Simulated assay, not measured.
Amino acid sequence: MKPSRRLLTLNIVVVVLAVVLDQVVKAIVVATMPLGEMIPIMPFLALLHARNTGIAFSMLAGLGPIELAGLAAVVLVAVLWLWVKTPPDRKLTHFALAIVVGGAIGNLIDRLVLGYVVDYVYFHTPVWSFAVFNLADSFISVGAFLIVIDEFLLAPRKEAALARKGRPGEGN
């Protein structure tokens, strides 16, 4: 079953908005904060202008930007294939895949244009610090979380409700 034109349009709008928002925020960070500058927001949160030459949590930082961009492109194609295979009634998954794709494209643009990804969100405590990340990373993480929620919680509940509805004497 193919997605409706309306769903396809909505998905494209979400992807474009995610990419534009990500790139605008990164441009503001680059234009207003010197590399390495940290601006405390809360005791555990700061803006920190950083460059990530690897992938999530700086893994594979030893690979060059072209290799990482190629890897990101392969993953993006795989996600797009999954997206095409997702039934149109799985609207949460469609939205989640749209923000994942938007985040992936945002970081891919950085890799191809800059050779690294601009990061700026820094969670930390005096004794512990989390990786520095960006809005595109958040889109990817939240999208993945929503897909898991839809796949393992919402879809099974919907299928169970439909199965109950179809049994004679139960809800008919």
Rank of each mutant, 00 (worst) to 15 (best):
A27D: 03
R164K: 11
W128M: 15
R90M: 13
G169N: 09
G64A: 05
N11I: 01
A27L: 06
F57N: 10
H124I: 04
V101Y: 00
F44I: 04
T53D: 15
V84S: 04
N172T: 11
K85V: 00
R164F: 02
D119Y: 05
E170D: 11
G166W: 07
V84K: 14
W81V: 10
E67G: 02
L154H: 07
V117Y: 04
V142C: 08
V142H: 04
D150V: 12
S138Q: 01
K158P: 00
E67Y: 14
D89I: 06
K26W: 05
A72T: 15
V16K: 00
R157K: 05
K2C: 00
A161C: 09
S4E: 04
L21W: 00
G36E: 11
V113E: 03
A136F: 00
K26A: 02
V19F: 01
R167F: 01
V30R: 14
G171V: 06
T53I: 10
H49D: 06
G102P: 03
G143R: 11
L71E: 08
H94Y: 07
R90C: 01
K91P: 09
G54D: 14
F123E: 12
P168E: 15
T32D: 07
V113D: 06
L21M: 15
Y122D: 13
N52P: 04
A18L: 09
L114E: 04
M42D: 04
D89L: 12
L154E: 07
Y120W: 15
I147Q: 14
L10V: 03
F152R: 10
I41Y: 04
I149A: 07
A73D: 05
H49T: 12
A131I: 13
N172R: 15
L82Q: 08
K165E: 11
A27N: 08
L7S: 15
V142P: 00
S129T: 15
P87K: 13
L21S: 12
V101G: 07
R111I: 03
L60T: 09
L80T: 05
E67W: 11
P156Q: 05
V74K: 06
I55N: 07
L114T: 05
L153W: 10
A161D: 15
L146W: 08
A136P: 05
V101C: 08
